[in-house]
Structures are given as C-alpha cells and as structure tokens.
C-alpha cells in the first residue's frame, strides 16, 4: 500500500516566556491512500499543532526541532513556499471546526470557490459550474443561487457543508478534518459524518479526522491514533482499541465516557490530576503521574513503542497489563 501521509518523529516546540514549550515530541503516524485515520486526544494534546505542522502553517514562535513529514513521498518540511502554495488546497486541505471563522465573511461563496480554482486554466463560467456541482453534491438545495450568498446568510450546518465542498473541490489526496462536527448539533453531526463518508468513497481521498469525541471517531475511522500531552501513545484498528486498549490513558479515556455506562452511576469516572508542564516535561513516561500502573521503571525510562498485535502498538512499559 502507498502512504499518503507519513509523519516520523515529529517534534515541535514553541518559544514562550516560560521557556521552550515542547508541544509535540516524537510524533509518528501514517495515513494510507483512501484510509480514514482518527486522531483522538483532549485539550492540550497537540492536535492543533500537528495540523499546523502538516500544512506548514505554524506560527512564528514555533520550531520543528526534529522529524519528517511526507505527503506522497514528498518532504513537506523542506518544500519551497511556491510548492507549498500549490500543495495547499489542491493536494492537502482542511475542514476546520468553526466554518464561520474559516470562510471569508466579505466574499460570496461563489467568489471563494472560484479563488480555490485559480490555477485551473478554465473559464470563470466553468469554475462556477464546478463549484455549483460540488455544492449540490454536499447537499445544498439550489446550488447556483447559493454561489451568490455570503457565509452569514447560511445556517451552521450549511456553512460546514460549504466548507467541505471547498475542501474537496480539488480532489485532494489528504483531507484533514479538525473537529468538524464539534460546533454542530447532534442531528447535524450525523448528517456531516455521513457526508464525509460518502465524499471519501467518491473521490478516494485519505482523511485524517481529528476529534476529542471517541464516539465520532469510532463511527467514522478505520484506525485511530491516541495522543496525550504531545505524544502519540497508542495506535491500532478502531475496534481493537476500543475492545482491548493497550495504553492506560486510552483505557481511562474510554472508561470516562458516560455513554458507556448503561446504568445510572452516582459517581462518574474521571482522570484525576492534570497535564504535565510541557515547558519542562517529566522524564520517563508522560502519563506516569496519572497512571495506576506506574512503577519505578516508568519514572526512569520513556516507554518505547511496543507492538501489541500486528498493526497495533502502545507506548507503555506495562501494555499487557492494561486490559486484564
């Protein structure tokens, strides 16, 4: 199989007044062509930094200190600005969480969709025709008329459909979906997930789907990568991970989901403690302070990735003890 996206040992830090904040430390993940991979993690796990790094849109105070990012074999980190501009939107595109802030409020939808096709060398009429066809495809009624509307005239669900239409208009190789349903209601969330699935089947792009919501990831993805405090801690097929998590953080995260408990619980599970200070990350395992299985070894040595079953690994010294 060919890898659409290949990330190896990616480390990113930010210069802050408190010192160098190590937002990503040795992150590796692969997305095969046509595959939907989920990245799950809570606030502060480095999801947003990862997306910015993949698009080479990191802020000025950020530095990639180590690692490689390859899109279809091409190194993104050393690509020239001209090449990056050609790549963004055509080969790699993003659907953001809040479509109101990712769409331009002062340009019509049609104008924005024309701009995406600026390198296409086709007539404006043809660009509009393609844009309208795409809007129709994502389920907007009367797409030709929608080209003349502005983002504020559309509802939240419609705006997210427009954002998906824009992101997939050029048939990218990789679509990054950054919490695309978090701002939407439950009944719209299912519509958007179904739409992403249909579009993916149609244009065959790979999707990196980023979310803090285990349920959404489970419904949509083939494989899932779990992130905690800037590290990837576990990876594997969705069903396996949910059935037999091999990292204590994954295990606790699944336990915390109140939807899992089918009888009323007076005391809901939670993960006590808080994220470590990433300007001075602790030695050894990053999750040690909040882990029930932690031993002296965890304090001394950062756990390497260990294969659990084929296609499945965990960065835990005690991986076999996580699910009894």
């Amino acid at each position: 199989m060919t890898e659409t996206l290949r990330v190896r040992d990616l480390s990113v830090s930010y210069d802050t007044r408190q010192g160098s904040l190590q937002a990503l430390r040795g992150v590796s993940l692969d997305v095969q062509a046509g595959e939907i991979v989920g990245v799950v993690g809570e606030s502060g796990c480095g999801k947003s930094t990862l997306i910015s790094a993949l698009m080479r849109l990191l802020p000025e105070n950020a530095h990639v200190t180590d690692g490689r990012i390859e899109l279809d074999g091409e190194d993104i980190l050393t690509a020239r600005p001209r090449r990056l501009r050609a790549m963004r939107g055509r080969e790699i595109s993003v659907v953001f969480q809040d479509p109101m802030t990712s769409l331009n409020p002062v340009l019509s939808i049609g104008r924005q969709m024309r701009d995406i096709q600026y390198r296409e060398g086709i007539s404006t009429a043809e660009k509009d025709r393609r844009a309208a066809a795409m809007l129709g495809r994502v389920g907007l009624p009367d797409p030709e008329a929608k080209l003349r509307t502005y983002p504020h005239e559309l509802s939240g669900g419609m705006r997210q459909r427009v954002a998906i239409a824009m992101a997939t208009l050029m048939h990218p190789k990789l679509l990054i979906a950054d919490e695309p349903t978090t701002a939407l209601d439950a009944t719209l969330e299912v519509q958007i997930i179904a739409l992403l699935q249909a579009i993916q089947a149609e244009i065959g792009c790979a999707i990196l789907f980023i979310s803090h919501h285990l349920g959404v990831i489970a419904e949509l993805c083939d494989r899932v990568v779990v992130m905690y405090a800037g590290e990837t801690v576990e990876e594997g097929p969705v069903a396996d991970i949910f059935e037999r998590p091999a990292h204590p953080y994954t295990h606790k995260l699944i336990e915390c989901d109140p939807g899992r408990l089918k009888t009323r619980a007076e005391t809901l599970p939670s993960i006590p403690g808080s994220l470590p200070d990433l300007t001075n990350p602790p030695a050894g395992c990053i999750f040690r302070d909040r882990c029930d299985l932690a031993t002296d070894l965890c304090a001394r040595q950062r756990p390497p990735r260990r294969s659990v079953t084929p296609g499945r690994w965990s960065a835990c010294h005690h991986a076999e003890k996580v699910t009894p």
Binding site: D185, T187, V190, H213, F242, E243
Partner: peptide, 25 residues
C-alpha cells in the same frame, strides 16, 4: 427518538442503526 439515535456510540459492538433527519431546525 432521532436525537437519541444521533448520539455517536464509542463502542463499535454497540453501534445502532442511525436515523438521519432531513434538513435543519
């Protein structure tokens, strides 16, 4: 019913049939 069925289920084994409502509020 639709609201309850729209709730994404993390456990793949407990996945239920989705009921997708048309349109928006």
């Amino acid at each position: 019913h639709a609201l309850m069925a729209a709730n994404p289920e993390p456990d793949p084994a407990a996945r239920h049939e989705r009921l997708i409502l048309k349109g928006e509020t």
